[in-house]
Structures are given as C-alpha cells and as structure tokens.
C-alpha cells in the first residue's frame, strides 16, 4: 500500500513501469518483424561470423552478444564480441615471446674477468666532457 503510493508519487522509483516494458517488448519484436530474418538465418550468420573471427582471435564466448536493432526503420545487426587475445601466429611484433629458433647452447660463450671491471679508460669525448 505504502510502496504503491510511493511509486505513484515517484514514478522513476519504479523502473519497471508498464510503459517502459511495452516499449522494450515492441522494439525487440519490431526489429525481428522488420528484418525478415528467420531465427535460423541469424543463428547460421552468427556461427559463420564467429568461425571467421576465430581464425584470427580468441573470443570470450560467455560475454558475446548478437542482436538485431532497429532505428528509424533501418535494421542493424549489433554484435559485441569481446576479444580475449590475438592468435599467436598473428602477433604484429615478431618474436615477442622467447624465441625458440636458436637453441641457447649453440651460441658462443661470453667471458668475464671480474678483477678487470672498471679498469677500462676509454677515449670517448663524451666521457671526458662529463667527468673532467
């Protein structure tokens, strides 16, 4: 009783009023009515689009959204397909991961003499300017 009265006084409290509900129902049903697309066509379109995208990227199949929308009598397919990552074979920077091409033991060993560290007196002009 009190809640009803409050909802009457503050209509925005009640987000699920029948006016908003009927608009949402209508928009959805009209998007389908207007498009002449059968649910089967939409489903096979969805699967083909996913197949193409899956060649390049990994998709988050739980968060996908694939719906028809209609504004001013123009139907559009709105797809939200969250990309988890690009497939490794399409990395734009080659060798971003650790390269497996040359086994590490094939490379020549680099020697180091601990007692000689810091002994080097170069003749670099830069060095002379900075430390005079």
């Amino acid at each position: 009783m009190l809640i009803e009265l409050l909802e009457k006084i503050f209509p925005t409290l009640n987000d699920r009023n029948s006016r908003q509900e009927v608009k949402n129902r209508l928009k959805l049903i009209l998007a389908h009515d207007r498009s002449d697309l059968t649910p089967q066509m939409i489903e096979s379109m969805r699967q083909e689009i996913l197949a193409v995208m899956s060649k390049y990227v990994d998709l988050d199949s739980d968060a996908m959204d694939f719906t028809l929308e209609n504004r001013s009598r123009v139907t559009s397919l709105v797809a939200n397909l969250p990309i988890l990552r690009v497939k490794p074979e399409f990395y734009t920077v080659k060798g971003e991961g650790i390269s497996q091409e040359t086994p590490i033991e094939d490379l020549p060993e680099i020697s180091i003499d601990e007692s000689a560290i810091g002994d080097f007196q170069g003749t670099s002009e830069l060095r002379n300017e900075n430390f005079k």
Binding site: K8, P11, S18, R19, K23, L26
Partner: peptide, 16 residues
Amino acid sequence: AVNDMMSVDDVTEILA
C-alpha cells in the same frame, strides 16, 4: 503521466 501508457513520442519514435 503515470507511465502506464506509451506517449505520443514513444509511438512516433518507434514507428518513425
């Protein structure tokens, strides 16, 4: 006024 019926704007927006 009490959101129990679509308004003129609602209907014209939908039918365009």
